[in-house]
Design a binder for these strands. Structure first.
Lengths: 245, 245
DNA sequence: CTCAATTTGTTCGTATGTATG
DNA sequence: ACATACATACGAACAAATTGA
């Protein structure tokens, strides 16, 4: 007969459950340092009022964070922060070819078999496609957990110069060591995206979790793209450092 | 008495609704070019099998994308892609102070009033805090829609050199024009994050939508941080271009 | 032209999750 | 904790349009 909900005007109606929105808002506040370890967070009535949602919704959010170990609620006292959120941004992306190589030098790629290799896509920057490419896919690991998925097209003529190396090591590292290769241009693009099914599975995250998609195109002195990489990083474990001067 | 669902092993049980996960997976496939404009996508029974979800769930996802104009289903025939996804990444982030200034030069910031300014946080790179800061918050607009939220701490001694300018123009641009300021170091860090409530509201996106968080610290020749900015961009409208050579 | 296979559209029943008051 | 409503998701069956043999 009459409407039941429709309350929150703070959280717009995206159809993702309210209690999850509340939970991630609280989590962000802790990560940002607005509430620190040991602090008492706002009371449930306060949160009710601030977010404009029902009590149970707040409770459900708090319960979630409690089972993560982030919060601890005590009757008659309040709810306290019981854990420092971990810093997971240990993967630092670098500017410049040499420093980029340093960071990926001792990465151990785990190569995967590929059934239907996609055709290489060049970005808007152009360059020309080679006649034929070899496609490689690998997962980058750190402490046995995956943080990046690499899809690389290498010009076949280049690949054939040292196939054994390309099968076992990071392609970009091999590439720069080949004596007969002259690099004309090297360009990188980063966008923020979301993991689709297959990627999510390989990176062991949920579908639609945010990712950083890096496209790297290396061209030789004849402007032919000899290396086209698409690297998808877990959004939660990378950091980009840039000196501006 | 008996369990009803529990089917999908493809989509892990994050509690965000299945049909949304399916919808965004399909959307990603179109964006990635796996299904192009005019293509017929997999049939509903195929998708059912691939994702391991019920028919209604697929339908709900397809309906969603249909009302976005991305898909169009025809009885007896199939479901077709009816729209090229738009390229929205028109905000290009730059490396290097001079090119950074160029891109933000004609941005029109809309300044906001702030009740309780947060205290400035320095990153791990260090430097020293000034005695006192002025806090400014502004929203960056393009075509009347917000794409970035800027929180800046400016050392009060610097702010006082040209308060009128700082109140109306982009702070970094003003800063570099001040004659008595010698910049020692300028450093930027980018991480991928998610919009919390207030940010989401100002940027007009849903809570928890992915964002790019850029921290920029400028120090003078005495290693004092005179400019500490935290800029939060909508994740879906920025692109980072880097020449590697 | 008819038939069968394929594909989307619709509906019923049921169980569980989300959110309000 | 309770009563209520609406949303999500499963399963199964059937209807309607399209296509090609």
């Amino acid at each position: 007969m009459n409407k039941a909900k429709q309350k929150s005007d703070v959280f717009q109606r995206s159809n993702i459950p309210l209690y999850i929105q509340v939970a991630s808002t609280l989590r962000r506040r802790i990560e940002q340092g607005r509430w620190k370890l040991g602090d008492k967070i706002s009371s449930i009535p306060e949160l009710e009022a601030e977010f404009g949602v029902a009590r149970i919704t707040i409770r459900q959010a708090v319960d979630n964070l409690t089972s993560e170990g982030l919060l601890s609620a005590k009757q008659g006292k309040g709810t306290y922060v019981t854990k420092e959120p971990e810093e997971t941004r240990w993967m630092t992306l670098e500017i410049g070819l040499s420093s980029l190589l340093q960071t990926i030098e001792d990465n151990v790629p785990k190569f995967l078999k590929v059934e239907n290799p996609p055709s290489p896509r060049l970005g808007p920057r152009g360059g020309e496609l080679a006649d034929e490419y070899v496609f490689l896919r690998s997962v980058q690991l750190k402490n046995n957990s995956p943080y990046g998925l690499v899809n690389v097209h290498i010009a076949k003529s280049v690949y054939d110069m040292s196939p054994e190396d390309f099968k076992t090591r990071t392609a970009l590292a091999v590439l720069t060591e080949l004596p007969d290769i002259k690099i004309g241009q090297a360009h990188q693009t980063l966008i923020i995206s979301a993991a689709e099914m297959e990627t999510a599975h390989l990176l062991k995250v949920d579908v639609n979790t945010s990712t950083a998609e890096v496209r790297c195109v290396v061209r030789n002195d004849q402007n032919i793209a000899i290396y086209i990489a698409e690297i998808i990083y877990r959004g939660d474990c990378i950091r980009f450092d840039i000196e501006l001067l």
